[in-house]
Design a protein around this nucleic acid. Structure first.
Lengths: 216, 216
DNA sequence: GTCTATAAACGGATAGAC
DNA sequence: GTCTATCCGTTTATAGAC
């Protein structure tokens, strides 16, 4: 293979890898300080480039945010929605949804979720896209609760209020959970799932404590 | 009373009333667009003054935020903490806390709560003050849950995780509740309180549905 | 008290050298 | 690819006239 061809090809994946790195760093900073309070200089410093140098890899600040949000939604689609969509029992599905979403936040950090709130910073076109994807997810959870209501398993509450309440609990995690905290991640996940599921269900039949009770 | 004295006195309350108005307007805009995305011009336009004119009443942008946050904490102290502090039964106290805090958000809007999240925008000194007040409130709720745990009424979960989870539900309200929505405020408050209390309690003895059951 | 005018710094983004 | 230099708009905040 001639030298020229190699020199042509290598930069392609290199460029995308570098761009990915910028996304990750930007997500971390924006999550900590907020989108508006984060300057392109902050990000450039953190990745070890000048601001101008960084613009070789990205299209602009708003576009950067949109890509991060899209990545976050991809992760929810892949790790939360897709694996639970086909669970028939709504109670089991709800538990899996909560556990997977919360687990994801504990695992990868709030970067993926918390930035989804900066909707007003997006262009109208981008905002429509993200809002649509969020709404789809919301509807999936709400319908699960509606199914539970039909089965008489839901508390006597409005399913929408219950869904919002669940999302509040979940989305708040990244604001208080610290990797270096006293409570181990596994305990947090188990306790949190219990709290979330029990908040909406009258009498949860599959509790996270079930297997322990069965063993004792 | 001589004219001069009157002229000296009147401006005092007038100035403070005007300042209060600025705080309220600023809180509303900042809550909607975020602190960083809100310019002093936005606020000045909304109160019908030029930016320079507004500086006659306020000390600066950061100080404005600090005053709004302090006001929000005052409201929590007054309407949530003070009226519930002396309730002896921890279960009753918890229910009152949730109901009052949620009710306050439904009533006055998210301006009071949502801006409390912009901690990074404060000077270190101001941040310390607000963080201290928030922590005090958190501890009060946590100790209530701890009491419930001692009485065997709490679910088998870490009290801190449960407290964070409660705050997540509560603080999220202002992101989804719309005054002009379909569900009446009273229903939202009743359902929400039910969800929050039931999330942490094994077997709630005083439920919001209690009186209806007693009547039927 | 409220304005016009402006200072001084910083924001995102680009041009063009290397 | 990465840099220096720079454009241009906007920001907070103030000076000083009225």
């Amino acid at each position: 293979m001639p030298r020229q061809a190699k020199a042509k090809v290598t930069p392609i994946w290199r460029k995308e890898a570098r761009a990915d790195h910028i996304y990750r760093v930007a997500a971390e900073i924006m999550c900590r300080k907020g989108y508006e309070a984060t300057s392109m200089n902050d990000i450039a410093d953190a990745v070890g480039l000048t601001k101008a140098g960084m613009y070789h890899y990205i299209q602009g600040k708003e576009h950067l945010l949109f890509e991060i949000m899209s990545f976050a939604m991809d992760m929810v689609d892949e790790n939360v929605i897709a694996p639970t969509r086909d669970i028939e029992d709504p109670e089991e599905r709800l538990r899996a949804l909560v556990q997977r979403h919360a687990g994801r936040i504990l695992e990868v950090g709030g970067e993926v979720t918390i930035l989804l709130e900066e909707m007003w910073a997006l262009t109208p076109a981008h905002r429509r896209i993200i809002r649509g994807r969020k709404r789809e997810y919301f509807e999936m959870v709400r319908q699960t609760l509606q199914q539970l209501a039909s089965a008489g398993k839901l508390r006597q509450v409005d399913p929408s209020v219950a869904t919002f309440s669940l999302f509040g609990m979940i989305n708040w995690i990244s604001r208080w959970y610290r990797r270096d905290g006293k409570i181990p991640k596994e305990v947090v996940l188990k306790d949190f799932t219990e709290l979330a599921v029990c908040s909406v269900l009258k009498t949860p039949s599959i509790s996270s404590g079930k297997k322990y009770r069965a063993l004792s």
